[in-house]
């Protein structure tokens, strides 16, 4: 009796792991076929199956080199606007969450609902005004006296825009964390004589470090991956961000799949690395933010 249950259980377990493994194959297959293709020569990827590794005769690094050359400027530009936008939106989100969670006054809920609704806005509904706004607020002429900024007006616009659209989600992430803090701890700090700003600096901020990791990782991934805002806000090709460079690489290298795949991997590399090393935080951001 016990034996049959055990073997049934064993069979169930085998079935379970088989299903899990099949799903792993499914989820990784686009990446696998892409990475194999990226290491193949043109004849290699046309004549062999996409998931088969390259043979010595069809193996080449060329695609990677060429793709990197095409994307190099885009990568630099993406880093230039993604990092400030990520840091700013996380920092501001933390401040907003503190101001709306751990102080008491009427109307907080209203402000909060407005902010949270901002997470769900389809970007299309603000695209035309955004492009108008950034042509009226002309960063290039405003900063004509400072070339490094004037030359990167599109990136400045992107950084500011992404900061603004990132604040709702980071606010929600930090708020969930701040709500879980012990109220009486903050009251104790008040009784200890700490001002609202001091409480933030000495109590809240040190306790927010894990949440900062979550918010920064989540925002970095979101902002790095975006294409739409860049399409609309970047006018000067010298300011093209990496998702734009990759799109034009794909458009101009029709049929050169090895080059396209290598380019896709190079573009994804920063977010992939972040994901591999901080997957837990990313998952927490995904689950907590709800977007």
């Amino acid at each position: 009796m016990a034996d049959t249950t055990d073997s049934r259980l064993g069979l169930n377990r085998i079935g379970l792991y088989a299903a899990l493994a099949l799903l792993v194959a499914f989820y990784l297959s686009p990446l696998e076929s892409a990475i194999m293709t990226a290491f193949k020569t043109q004849t290699g990827f046309f004549e062999t199956s996409p998931f088969v590794p390259p043979t010595p005769s069809t193996f080449t690094f060329d695609a990677w080199g060429q793709a990197f050359d095409r994307l190099e400027q885009g990568l630099v530009n993406s880093l230039l606007f993604t990092i400030p936008a990520t840091v700013l939106s996380a920092t501001l989100g933390s401040l907003v969450a503190y101001g709306l969670t751990n102080t008491k006054w009427r109307g907080q809920a209203f402000v909060l609902v407005l902010l949270v609704a901002g997470i769900f806005i389809p970007y299309q509904s603000v695209l035309v005004p955004l492009s108008r706004f950034w042509s009226i607020v002309d960063v290039a002429s405003l900063f004509a006296w400072f070339e490094p900024v004037a030359d990167r007006s599109g990136l400045v616009a992107l950084a500011v825009t992404h900061t603004a659209y990132g604040i709702p989600i980071t606010t929600l992430l930090f708020r969930a964390h701040y709500q879980s803090l012990d109220d009486s701890m903050l009251e104790a700090a008040r009784l200890d004589g700490a001002s609202i700003a001091k409480i933030y600096a000495r109590i809240i901020l040190p306790l927010s470090i894990p949440m900062f990791a979550v918010a920064l990782i989540y925002q970095f991934t979101n902002i790095w991956n975006d294409l739409l805002f860049a399409l609309v806000l970047v006018q000067n090709p010298a300011n093209d961000v990496v998702t734009m460079s990759l799109t034009s690489l794909q458009g101009s290298m029709v049929g050169q799949y090895n080059l396209q795949m290598a380019g896709a991997f190079i573009t994804a590399l920063p977010t992939l690395l972040v994901y591999i090393f901080f997957g837990e935080q990313f998952a927490e951001g995904v689950a907590g933010g709800g977007a």
């Binding site: 990446l31 076929s33 991956n225 998702t243 794909q250 396209q260 380019g263 896709a264 573009t267 994804a268």
Partner: peptide
């Protein structure tokens, strides 16, 4: 964690 741009290129292939 991947960009739509990246996944679209993967799936085109």
């Amino acid at each position: 964690s991947l960009s739509f741009v990246v996944t679209a290129i993967f799936w085109a292939w």
